[in-house]
Design a protein around this nucleic acid. Structure first.
Length: 730
DNA sequence: CAATCAAACATTTTT
DNA sequence: TGTTTGATTG
């Protein structure tokens, strides 16, 4: 019998480490405190994360209850649990694996009292939040024009994500002062109604630990290992949360990829990776660079592209697989031609044996899907668009949820207002105003109970209150969740209402589906109570998973494709102004983020990649002439193959005219003037803004506008009739 | 209270 | 150009 050296023996027994490459194995078995793992696309990130958890348990370094793993999406959290359980059996209720929000929710339910929250607190999703803000603006009798509800919402959320309460905000402008005032009222109202919005879940949790040292230390000692997925997507508050939760002995294992940071617009700060390095005194970074997803050519293109970004941590993906086919490039005359090319190629790939569901059509913005869908439909190609309304976001479903919420928490004015007159019970705005007046600091529900109305309104209110009281009683008597939901569906009159509506069939189906969802939920978990079901509905609005039976081409934005992979990928709309998006060009580091987005798009492909664009495209009702995306120029020509005539590159393209006018002769003359002096890529000088480059043009001669990227002043649209622009040579 | 019409707006989005 | 939102009207 053969004898083994010590390290080989370890390998023998550690079957969970089998098949890992050296870098992965080093990360999994990292034993020197905290670590930052730079995990490239397709490098086995989730595998490393889950294997590490399994390894920690196998080697008795941690019990399941001593680890906490945090992700951004429910899907990622579920996948982690599934894969972990396949490596090492563990009771799922012992695991603290979830989203930031889900975990915060769990902490806050346990410590509701210390966090000064009512035991029945409800989670407000974005719609709830917006509705509440609108209600507050109305009660203040403020003008929607001066204080747009959406901006207020953005203001509140972004400040909470910076850890700032209303009183801590220093308003810079009069508008901000108004927003702050609404924020103050909003805070009070949330507290009164027991509503907690998404950002509040994080902020409350942070404040809880900040103010309760004993509690903080308890968790710091309990969770010996923290694992963070998609670390590059953390915002400031999430980073604070992580720091508070980690004590001197905690080992934080943060996995991320600075090259895939594409969510700065919603508060993500890649800088957290640098901060983490410094704050946790890390001496080196672990890198996962071997890619198991894509063929060589695709990786070469991705590497070449992302290399144009400055100040990266630096990372080069490689594969020991083959190089594969060149990347297919195509330029169509317009978006329909581009779509037709894609449809035909999809059919070709399909005939060659690739399933439609293994192919994806990606685009920068949702509006692009329309033309693509139309052409796919005409070709008889089944497709599925991601990103629509999700189950718990549907109007009828939210109505039922409002009834259920009221049964638990009658203080919830938002839910009260949502359904007090739905289905219609003859309770109009006048009656509600009266109710508001009588409420005076208490809830509308209490006011309705204490001050009976007369007449039709009184009757309506009576039946509404009766319904809620009945539900309340049913819950208290311990009626099972699905039965409670059923009762809500029927007693509220919602089922009846939608049955009578001529277009209501689908809504009725969704209502029935609610009962099924409740049943599934209570079977899945031991705590199948109404409160956790409602939290589930807010925290997990339902998946957009493809129905497994049908084979369909997948359509989605590049953002939505992050984390996914497909055999064949098309990226449509590779034009300057669209991708990179012109709005991003004006933002600081905007171009870099767009480039990372393109990097994400490219690295979704396993075997074959197509990049397409259109010379002209209907955008917002106007024909716009596009230029090939600068990102195409950044991919070495040798990796690509043109499947159309190449078209013109940004620097060489001269635009010849506009199509905005129905009288071509008139516009041709005027635009002829324009094009003789300026062309795309032309260097220009402006009196005030200095020197810049022409990015795009639109409009008719006298109303013609040029988009210019100034070196110092950024991207601006200038009217030709007024702007004093001088063409420069070169 | 529903239906209809005009106006505003159009980058990406999970929890 | 197409969708969504709000206001007006019957």
């Amino acid at each position: 019998m053969r004898t083994f050296k010590a390290y080989e023996r370890v390998t023998m027994t550690s079957t969970i480490l089998d098949g890992l490459n050296d870098a992965q194995r080093e990360a999994v078995t990292w034993a020197e405190g905290s670590a930052l793992v730079l995990a490239g696309a397709g490098s086995g990130k989730t595998r490393v994360l889950t294997t590490r958890m399994a390894w920690l348990m196998q080697t008795s370094q941690a019990r399941p209850t001593e680890m906490l793993a945090v992700t951004f999406t429910n899907k990622a959290a579920r996948e982690m649990v599934t894969r972990l359980s396949s490596l090492w059996p563990v009771p799922s209720r012992d695991l603290w694996v979830g989203t930031f929000h889900g975990l915060c929710h769990r902490f806050l339910r346990i410590h509701a009292q210390e966090a000064q929250l009512p035991a029945q607190f409800q989670i407000l999703d974005m719609q709830d939040q917006l509705a509440l803000i609108k209600r507050i603006l109305k009660s203040l009798q403020w003008d929607d024009e001066q204080t747009p509800p959406r901006q207020v919402q953005q203001f509140i959320n972004s400040h909470k994500e910076q850890g700032l309460r209303a009183h801590a905000v220093t308003p810079a402008t009069a508008a901000q002062r108004r927003f702050q005032e609404v924020y103050e009222v909003y805070e009070k109202q949330c507290q009164r109604e027991g509503g907690v919005d998404f950002a509040e879940l994080l902020l409350r949790c942070v404040e809880l630990w900040h103010h309760h040292a004993a509690l903080r230390e308890h968790y710091q000692q309990r969770f010996k290992f923290l694992l963070v997925d998609e670390f590059q997507d953390t915002n400031r508050l999430q980073y604070r949360w992580l720091r508070l939760l980690s004590g001197a002995q905690t080992a934080v294992f943060a996995v991320g990829d600075d090259d895939q940071s594409i969510y700065s617009f919603r508060g993500a700060e890649v800088e957290n990776m640098r901060h983490f390095q410094k704050d946790f005194g890390l001496t080196r970074i672990l890198r996962l660079e071997q890619n198991y997803r894509s063929l060589g050519t695709i990786l070469d293109a991705a590497n070449a592209l992302i290399d144009h970004n400055p100040s990266r941590f630096g990372k080069k993906l490689w594969t020991d697989g083959g190089s594969g086919e060149p990347i297919g490039l195509y330029a169509g005359d317009n978006e329909m031609a581009e779509a037709r090319f894609i449809a035909e190629e999809v059919q070709r790939c399909h005939h060659q044996g690739t399933r439609l569901s293994d192919m994806a059509l990606l685009y920068r913005s949702n509006a692009q899907s329309r033309a693509l869908e139309q052409v796919l439909f005409n070709h008889g190609l089944p497709y599925r668009v991601y990103g629509g309304l999700r189950f718990f976001e549907r109007q009828e479903v939210r109505h039922v949820l409002a009834y259920l919420r009221l049964a638990l928490n009658p203080e919830d004015d938002a839910s009260f207002l949502r359904v007090v007159n739905f289905p219609p019970r003859g309770i109009g705005p006048r009656s509600l105003e009266g109710l508001h007046a009588k409420a005076a600091g208490t809830s509308l529900y209490q006011a309705a109970l204490n001050h009976p109305f007369s007449g039709k309104t009184g009757q309506g209110l009576q039946s509404f209150l009766g319904c809620i009281e009945g539900l309340k009683k049913a819950v208290q008597e311990g009626l099972l969740l699905p039965a409670v939901v059923r009762k809500a569906l029927e007693d509220s009159g919602l089922l009846m209402h939608y049955r009578q509506e001529k277009e209501g069939a689908e809504r009725v189906e969704n209502l029935e589906e609610m009962e099924a969802a409740a049943l599934a939920f209570s079977l899945e978990r031991e705590e199948g109570d109404l409160l956790s079901f409602l939290a589930h509905a807010s925290l997990e609005a339902g998946d957009q998973e493809a129905s497994p039976g049908t084979d369909a081409l997948q359509l989605m934005t590049v953002h939505a494709a992050k984390g996914l992979e497909f055999d064949v990928v098309w990226v449509a709309g590779m034009e300057d102004g669209l991708f990179p998006h012109e709005n991003a060009l004006g933002e600081v580091k905007g171009l870099e983020e767009e480039r990372r987005l393109a990097y994400v798009a490219i690295t979704r492909a396993r075997r074959r990649l197509y990049l397409t664009y259109a010379h002209s495209r209907m955008l917002q009702g106007q024909v716009r002439y596009g230029l090939r995306s600068r990102f195409l120029e950044e991919i070495p020509e040798g990796l690509c193959r043109w499947l159309s005539s190449p078209g013109l590159s940004p620097k060489k393209t001269y635009f010849s005219g506009y199509e905005t006018s129905l009288a071509p002769s008139a516009s041709a003359v005027k635009s002829g003037n324009v094009s003789s002096r300026f062309h795309i890529g032309q260097s220009v000088r402006h009196e005030k803004f200095g020197s810049g480059v022409v990015l795009a043009a639109e409009g008719d001669g006298s109303e013609g506008r040029l988009q210019v990227n100034f070196r110092d002043a950024g991207v601006k649209w200038l009217a030709l009739a007024f702007a004093k622009l001088t063409p420069l040579a070169g």
